[in-house]
Each structure stands twice: as structure tokens, then as C-alpha cells.
Design a protein around this nucleic acid. Structure first.
Length: 446
DNA sequence: ATAGGGTTAG
């Protein structure tokens, strides 16, 4: 990785960068340097473009700076342009700007390093994010937090928790942002012990800035870990709630099949000034689907668009399909999928296929399997369901064909479970591997 | 002037 950057340096990094930027047409200088009425300096324009999400404009401007006034590029320009790349997850451009950072000697600046870690995380390049972090001579809370977020964002919550512990072993105190991020790793893992440990840490700490995001993260951790009682107590104790607070609690009840509680909480929410958003409705629809309240689900789905002007996304349609399937309305579910305004994905069809496995219907199942074959032909679970359907219908020849398909797969299917929290050694290598053990020590709760 | 914040179907 850094090898290649050094390689770029030797073979003139500027030419490489110009190549990357050459695909954008030239912008006249007058358009660049005057912004509004007053003339602004390039960095101020870049900052403005960043604020307004004008990615292309920012890249045009930066290219013109390289071509015409390279001396006006400083560490702030590079910081802003790196943030532009992060915001849009541009997979190639950020690396080129990293090259420039090296060339200009801005590598030791902690703000630059931190935003590079964040950039590599945004393009799912954890190896380079880690390398920039490892090469930092002085590390502070912010860069540790960015790296922890990187692992959370890229579905490596065990690694995130491991880093959280390493940070403390490095004698750095986490702040409220570190804790918010770490709590989401706990939520992803169902790591209730660690979550409680953090809750306790928050209670003890006097200097921590305990803002609403932190409490929302705590609430979310408790609901995702299944401790709905503590979640409820926490929810009540939060005086100033926002839409996320309400949504977390509603979704928490929904996940645990407590539809009545979820829906009455939604009604209570409508009595406040907090307006439900599309995510809130996912919680509401989940609640209906988990207890097969078909008519209520349909009503809320309508309410969402008609009363709140919210446009349903694929996940909302997914909730509806789930709702119809759980109620055994398989044909209606299929019709619903076919008339959706968005293209159905594999997950959606798979919901229906799973339902066919529960309540029969070989013809429908074969139809759905055919559609799934076009989307993700090698998903082992689909064949398992088909095999079971054939088996329960006594169609043994087709069952055998399906079983053989499964056995011929090169990559075995796998599942994983949480293995208690007493183990404080982690399995060598990737600790987010499905077969790795939990990696943190059992916290001592005072 | 400058870096960090998961409420989202199955």
C-alpha cells in the first residue's frame, strides 16, 4: 500500500493525479475563484463545496489548483478534499490525494492522518486505514475513535471491541463519542456484558459529556441485546427524547414481539412534537408483522405515505412482504412484490421462499426459486428450503438433485453463536471470523 | 480554519 505510494512518488505523482482528474472538463478560473460576490480563497471555496456536498465542483477546483496554482494548495486544502472523497466513498481519488499529502510533507499532521483513516474506512479498505493509524506517532482519542468506527462500519464489531480495550491499555480515556461508537459494536454483537460495563463507566464518570446520542446508543444496545426491561427504564429516564430515542424503543418492542407495547408507544409518540420518520415506520411495520396483524400493517403502511408524506423504501416493502407471509397470504405477497415500484432484491424473494417452506406450495416455491436463481444463484439456504419442500411433498427425485447441488458447493454454509464472556483470549488471526470467540474479559461491575 | 457520532426488513 504505502509501497505503491512511494512508487507513485518516484514516477511523478502529479501526473497520476492529473490523469485521475482529467476526466472532468476544464472550468474557467473566473468560475472558480469568485464565489458569490466576494472573492474567496480556494480553501474557503473548497470548504463551502464540502458543506454543500458539491463533490464534482470541489474536484474541478482542486484539479485546477494543481494545474495553475499549486502553491496555493496547503494542508487545509488536502484535508477538505480528503473529506470530499470520504463523503462520497470515492474508491480511487482519495489514494491520489494521499500521495500528494506524502509529497507535500503533510503526513505528520494529526488532522490529516485522522481523516485519511476515515477515508480508507469509507471505501472499505481496513488494511490501509489500519496502516495509517499504526504509523501515527502520536495518537489521541479522536483517531482511536475513528479506527473503532472503521471496524464497526465494516462489520467487524469484535475487532472494534478489541481496539476499545487496547485504547484503554494505552491509557487513553474514551470520551462520549468513543463510547457511542463502541456501544453500537456491542449492539451488533449482542454483547450485553460489555454494554453494561460501558453503562457503568458512564454512570461513574463525572467529566463525560453525556449527550442524547450517547443515551440513544445505550438504549439501542439494551434493545438489541434483548434486555427490554432495562431499555424501558432507560427510555423513561431520558427527559428530552428525539425521534431516534422513540424509534429505538418502538423497534426494540417490535423485535421482541411486543407489538401492543410498540404500537401504543407509537401512538404516544404522535402526541408529542416529535415527528416519526421512515425508520420509525420500519419499527411499526415490524411490530405488526411479528404478530401477523395484517390489517394494522396495511393501515400504517398507508398512513406513512398519506399522513406523513414518507416514501416507502425497499425495507418497508420488505416488512410488508414479511407481514403477508407470516399471515400465510403467500399469493398476495407475490402479487405485492410484482407490483412494487422498486426492483425487488434477493432478500425480499427469499422471505417468500422461506414462507413457502412453512406452508407448502411447490409451484410457487419453484417460481420464486427461479427468480432467486437470477439474483443470487449460489445461496445454499435457498436449496435447503427447496429440498425440504420437495421432501415434505414426497418429490424425492427433485429433492436429491437439490441436495446434490448443496453438496457440490465449495464454500460450506456456516452459522455462529456467542460463546459466553469468560474467555479473554481471542482466536488467532481474524477475531471477527465466525468461529472466533468473544475477545474481551468479563467486566467487573461495581 | 483543521479530525470522530448506527433508529433501518430477513
Amino acid at each position: 500500500m504505502f509501497f505503491s505510494i512511494m512508487g507513485f512518488l518516484k514516477s511523478s505523482s502529479l501526473i497520476k493525479i492529473q490523469n485521475i482528474l482529467a476526466k472532468f472538463p476544464l472550468t474557467k478560473p473566473s468560475q472558480i475563484h469568485s464565489h458569490g460576490r466576494t472573492k474567496l480563497r480556494p480553501n474557503e471555496v473548497l470548504k463551502e463545496y464540502l458543506k454543500t456536498n458539491a463533490t464534482a465542483k470541489a474536484l474541478f477546483l482542486f484539479r485546477d489548483l494543481i494545474r495553475k496554482s499549486i502553491s496555493s494548495i496547503d494542508s487545509f486544502s488536502l484535508l477538505y478534499i480528503t473529506k470530499v472523497c470520504t463523503r462520497k466513498s470515492l474508491p480511487h481519488e482519495g489514494r491520489q490525494f494521499h500521495t500528494l499529502v506524502v509529497k507535500f510533507g503533510y503526513e505528520p499532521i494529526i488532522f490529516i492522518q485522522t481523516s485519511l483513516v476515515s477515508y480508507y474506512s469509507s471505501v472499505a479498505n481496513l488494511a490501509d486505514a489500519r496502516q495509517v493509524f499504526d504509523e501515527m506517532l502520536t495518537k489521541n482519542v479522536v483517531c482511536w475513535t475513528v479506527l473503532i468506527s472503521a471496524y464497526v462500519d465494516n462489520q467487524k464489531p469484535n475487532s472494534a471491541l478489541k481496539l476499545f480495550r487496547e485504547m484503554q491499555m494505552d491509557n487513553l480515556e474514551p470520551d462520549q463519542i468513543t463510547l457511542t461508537v463502541t456501544l453500537s459494536a456491542c449492539a451488533d454483537l449482542g454483547a450485553l456484558d460489555m454494554g453494561k460495563w460501558i453503562h457503568n463507566y458512564i454512570r461513574r464518570s463525572k467529566k463525560l459529556d453525556k449527550d442524547l446520542s450517547l443515551y440513544n446508543a445505550l438504549l439501542n444496545m439494551y434493545t438489541k441485546c434483548g434486555d427490554i426491561e432495562t431499555a424501558k427504564i432507560l427510555f423513561v429516564s431520558i427527559e428530552k427524547k428525539d425521534v431516534k430515542t422513540w424509534t429505538s424503543m418502538i423497534t426494540g418492542y417490535a423485535i421482541h414481539g411486543q407489538a401492543t407495547e410498540a404500537l401504543s408507544l407509537f401512538r404516544a409518540m404522535t402526541q408529542t412534537k416529535i415527528i416519526p420518520n421512515d425508520v420509525t415506520f420500519i419499527g411499526v411495520l415490524m411490530a405488526c408483522s411479528h404478530v401477523a396483524m395484517v390489517d394494522d400493517g396495511k393501515r400504517y403502511f398507508k398512513k406513512m405515505t398519506e399522513d406523513y408524506g414518507l416514501k416507502p423504501r425497499i425495507s418497508h416493502f420488505g416488512c410488508m412482504v414479511d407481514l403477508l407471509c407470516r399471515a400465510g397470504l403467500l399469493q398476495e405477497a407475490k402479487d405485492f412484490i410484482l407490483q412494487m415500484p422498486v426492483k425487488p432484491n434477493a432478500v425480499l424473494w427469499r422471505t417468500l421462499l422461506g414462507a413457502c417452506g412453512n406452508s407448502g406450495g411447490v409451484d410457487l416455491a419453484e417460481d420464486v426459486r427461479g427468480r432467486l436463481f437470477e439474483l443470487e444463484e449460489n445461496w445454499a439456504g435457498d436449496d435447503v428450503i427447496m429440498g425440504n419442500i420437495y421432501g415434505s411433498s414426497g418429490i424425492w427425485d427433485k429433492k436429491e438433485i437439490t441436495r446434490n447441488r448443496i453438496n457440490e458447493r465449495r464454500v460450506p454454509g456456516c452459522s455462529w453463536i456467542e460463546v459466553g464472556s469468560e474467555i479473554n483470549e481471542f482466536v488467532a488471526g481474524d477475531c471477527d471470523h465466525p468461529f472466533a470467540c468473544k475477545i474481551y474479559e468479563k467486566p467487573k461491575i461495581e
